[in-house]
C-alpha cells in the first residue's frame, strides 16, 4: 500500500489491505486491552486476599451466631443483597415474578446487587 496515494482513489488490492489491516489493528488492540484488564482483575483480587488474610484470626472469637429462624413456607435459601434495601429487593422480586407469570415461591433469587 503506497501511503502517498492514500488520499487518491485506491485500487481493489490496496483497499482490501487497508480494510484487513484496520480490522486486525482493532482486534489486536482490544485483545491486548483484554489482557491488561485481566491482569488488573488478578492484581486486585490478590490485594483483596492479602488484606482479608489476617482478619479471620482476629475476628474468629467475635463471629456472630448463624441465624436460627426458620424460612417462610415455600421459600428456599437466602437472597444475598448488595447495597439494596430489603424493601427494594422485595419490589424487584415481585416485578420479576409478575413479568415471568410465575408465583414468587417458585422462583429462586440468589443475589441482588445495585449496578453502579
Amino acid at each position: 500500500m503506497n501511503p502517498v496515494a492514500l488520499t487518491a482513489k485506491m485500487g481493489m488490492a490496496d483497499a482490501g489491505i487497508a480494510a484487513v489491516l484496520g480490522y486486525a489493528v482493532v482486534f489486536v488492540g482490544l485483545i491486548l486491552l483484554m489482557a491488561v484488564v485481566i491482569l488488573m482483575g488478578k492484581a486486585m483480587a490478590g490485594t483483596r486476599k492479602q488484606a482479608e488474610a489476617p482478619a479471620p484470626t482476629a475476628a474468629a472469637p467475635a463471629a456472630p451466631a448463624a441465624p436460627t429462624g426458620t424460612p417462610a413456607p415455600g421459600s428456599a435459601g437466602e437472597v444475598k443483597l448488595f447495597d439494596v434495601p430489603d424493601k427494594e429487593a422485595a419490589i424487584l422480586m415481585a416485578i420479576v415474578a409478575d413479568k415471568m407469570g410465575k408465583p414468587l415461591n417458585e422462583l429462586r433469587f440468589k443475589s441482588i446487587k445495585e449496578v453502579k
Binding site: 482513489k9 487497508a18 484487513v20
Partner: peptide, 16 residues
C-alpha cells in the same frame, strides 16, 4: 466499518 470502507473504495470514494 472496514467492509463498508472497502465497498466505498470500490465505488470510487477516496481513502479518507
Amino acid at each position: 466499518v472496514f467492509l463498508a470502507m472497502f465497498g466505498a473504495m470500490l465505488l470510487g470514494f477516496t481513502g479518507p
